[in-house]
Amino acid sequence: MSGESAALDKVDAEVDARGMNCPLPILKAKKALSAMQSGQVLRVLATDHGSMRDFQAFARQTGNELVAQTEQAGVISHLLRRR
């Protein structure tokens, strides 16, 4: 998950899934990614701590790159690059 600072400069879309529990953050991310072009970066904001594992598995299963996962003040930011 290197290159986080470079990816943070170029986010093409953002999904706010704060306050939502699994599987809603993944479903919202999946919908947003389907509307994006290859190589674009999606940021998903979530408060469900299970989303850390969920997004790791989602990236493996879909082939989208999980660029970074960071947590600040209870909000987890997941950066995904569209395959």
Results as ranks from 00 to 15, higher is better:
residue 1 M to H: 15
residue 1 M to W: 08
residue 1 M to Y: 13
residue 1 M to V: 14
residue 4 E to V: 09
residue 4 E to W: 06
residue 5 S to G: 08
residue 6 A to W: 13
residue 7 A to F: 01
residue 7 A to N: 13
residue 8 L to P: 10
residue 9 D to T: 11
residue 9 D to N: 04
residue 10 K to T: 14
residue 10 K to E: 14
residue 11 V to K: 15
residue 12 D to G: 11
residue 12 D to A: 12
residue 13 A to Q: 12
residue 14 E to F: 05
residue 14 E to C: 09
residue 14 E to R: 15
residue 16 D to E: 00
residue 16 D to G: 04
residue 17 A to M: 03
residue 17 A to T: 14
residue 17 A to G: 06
residue 17 A to N: 11
residue 18 R to C: 14
residue 19 G to T: 00
residue 21 N to A: 01
residue 22 C to L: 14
residue 23 P to Q: 10
residue 23 P to M: 04
residue 23 P to Y: 04
residue 24 L to W: 14
residue 24 L to D: 15
residue 24 L to I: 12
residue 25 P to D: 03
residue 25 P to K: 01
residue 25 P to Y: 11
residue 25 P to E: 05
residue 27 L to E: 07
residue 28 K to P: 04
residue 30 K to L: 13
residue 30 K to P: 03
residue 31 K to Q: 10
residue 31 K to A: 15
residue 32 A to D: 00
residue 33 L to I: 09
residue 34 S to E: 14
residue 35 A to C: 11
residue 36 M to P: 01
residue 37 Q to K: 15
residue 38 S to I: 06
residue 38 S to Y: 11
residue 39 G to A: 11
residue 39 G to N: 07
residue 40 Q to H: 12
residue 43 R to Q: 13
residue 44 V to W: 11
residue 44 V to F: 08
residue 44 V to G: 08
residue 45 L to M: 12
residue 45 L to C: 10
residue 46 A to H: 13
residue 46 A to N: 13
residue 47 T to V: 04
residue 48 D to M: 02
residue 48 D to Y: 04
residue 48 D to I: 07
residue 48 D to Q: 06
residue 49 H to C: 05
residue 50 G to V: 00
residue 50 G to M: 02
residue 51 S to R: 05
residue 52 M to Y: 03
residue 53 R to F: 13
residue 54 D to N: 09
residue 54 D to F: 01
residue 55 F to Q: 03
residue 58 F to S: 06
residue 58 F to P: 05
residue 58 F to N: 07
residue 59 A to C: 05
residue 59 A to Q: 09
residue 60 R to I: 05
residue 61 Q to H: 02
residue 61 Q to A: 14
residue 62 T to P: 08
residue 62 T to E: 11
residue 63 G to I: 05
residue 63 G to R: 12
residue 64 N to Q: 03
residue 64 N to W: 01
residue 65 E to V: 03
residue 66 L to A: 03
residue 66 L to C: 08
residue 68 A to K: 06
residue 68 A to R: 06
residue 69 Q to M: 15
residue 69 Q to E: 11
residue 70 T to C: 02
residue 70 T to H: 08
residue 72 Q to T: 10
residue 72 Q to N: 06
residue 72 Q to M: 02
residue 73 A to S: 08
residue 73 A to W: 02
residue 74 G to H: 04
residue 74 G to D: 02
residue 75 V to A: 10
residue 76 I to G: 02
residue 76 I to F: 07
residue 77 S to L: 00
residue 78 H to L: 13
residue 78 H to I: 03
residue 78 H to P: 02
residue 78 H to V: 02
residue 78 H to T: 03
residue 79 L to G: 07
residue 81 R to F: 05
residue 82 R to E: 02
